[in-house]
Nucleic acid binder design. Structure first.
Lengths: 238, 238
DNA sequence: CGGAAACTTGAAACCTTTCAAGAGTCGTGG
DNA sequence: CCACGACTCTTGAAAGGTTTCAAGTTTCCG
């Protein structure tokens, strides 16, 4: 379907995208962003339950979420599912696939979702043309190590701290990307959240209820409103 | 101190190092390795307890262990220490420091240790000159994500499986680097190993003893001999 | 509106921790 | 070469946090 000039003008590309300071174009000059957006494939749309990629698929590119949420799932040798991460708009995923040139995890849409993709075939080429991008790629990969490390650390703490840390982290990430950091959607069911934090579904439910009783949160299903952020932060100190 | 021709000839450089297929030079041609070894600083030596780098230090380079063992420690916001990893000869560390250009962990020698370093200032430059190295750098960073992910997964399993997975992983890594995979040193004390696996010191001790009683291992302090590898692997299936 | 999925909540069971005491190991200096 | 002290490891018993099981309630969606 050919586009009219008007449609073309309204199309969101990297240089006019709200996430240009956190997504692939991070750290690049306007001119470099123009180069980048020639190779980034834009705005594919998925529906709830559909996959951005599946574990074992040949690596086809790095993904940037544009809208909606996704979860990153790892299937271990025993076939158990592990929810590794929740992905918010503006966040990148797929760096762990570079080592074997196939995806090691599955990424599944938690609701209607749109995303961009930096194709695998273009990564070396574009990094070579934009040295700043090479550094940013390494930094993004480096951040992914840190994200995974933080999950490891978090799981070593008591249930209340695990949950508080999860909520505060999600809140921070929402706020950092221009969304409300005090009233947001956790995306995951209690079961998925329990899986992510290595807690039983029942423990997640009980602990959230505790926080609510103490007046720290307001919980409506998967929607969380943070009422007393300091109390949650204090919990992490002990 | 100027070197005699003989000393120079005997010096270990990348192209005659036993780890050239797993370390920085991995995947490079002989000619590319020559280029690389001009920027890699070789064979610094540390003694037990000394640090390769400390959390918070400005990032000065990526490290390759040449001999000896090290542990990678993360200090969380509450000042708790977390043993993230044991490092064996031929293994690389420091990729998580790229994102903020400072080290996020501390790396401490577990015994007398020698290492090489790819200086921070040279990374972009050399990747630009050796495109293959750029890919390998991204792959190494990607592997580090996987390593950290595996620790997360491991911690979610029962104590016996955690310990078995640790021993099998260490065994595999030793064997992959040309050491004996059936009789090796775990490097860590029971307390450090407990910290790494999120188990109490006493649980590590008890579980090792269990394995020994079943005839799966022979334990002499930090030295482990694997007697029944299949039994350990079977434990991971359930 | 009805059925399925998601969530809450209580009680018992369980794995792991904590506490504590004792045994073993290592390096060093007399 | 052995004794000493410090560190490390083993082992038992009680305590504790989390899970499991199960039943009931709410929410969501066709």
């Amino acid at each position: 379907m050919p586009m009219t000039p008007l449609q073309k003008k309204l199309e969101v590309t990297c240089h006019n995208c709200g996430f240009s300071t956190v997504c692939f174009p991070r750290g690049l000059t306007q001119q470099e962003i123009r180069q980048l957006e020639n190779v980034v494939q834009r705005r594919k749309v998925l529906h709830k339950g559909e996959y951005l990629f599946r574990s074992g698929d040949p690596f086809h590119g790095l993904i940037a979420i544009k809208s909606g949420m996704a979860k990153l799932i790892y299937h271990d040798d025993q076939g158990e599912e592990h929810v590794l991460q929740v992905l918010l708009p503006g966040e990148l995923v797929g760096f762990d696939a570079l080592s074997e040139e196939k995806y090691r995890c599955s990424a599944q849409a938690l609701d209607t979702l749109s995303y961009c993709e930096l194709p695998a075939t273009q990564i070396s080429r574009i990094c070579f043309r934009i040295p700043t991008l090479l550094n940013e790629m390494l930094k993004h990969a480096s951040e992914a190590i840190g994200t995974q490390r933080d999950q490891t650390i978090s799981i070593k703490k008591p249930a209340e701290q695990r949950l508080a840390a999860f909520l505060l982290d999600l809140s921070r990430r929402y706020a950092f990307r221009g969304f409300c950091g005090d009233d947001f959607n956790i995306g995951l069911t209690r079961e998925e959240l329990g899986n992510h934090l290595d807690l039983a579904l029942a423990t997640v439910s009980r602990t959230l209820k505790q926080f609510e009783k103490r007046g720290w949160l307001e919980v409506h299903g998967r929607r969380i409103r943070i009422l007393d952020r300091e109390a949650l932060e204090r919990l992490l100190q002990d």
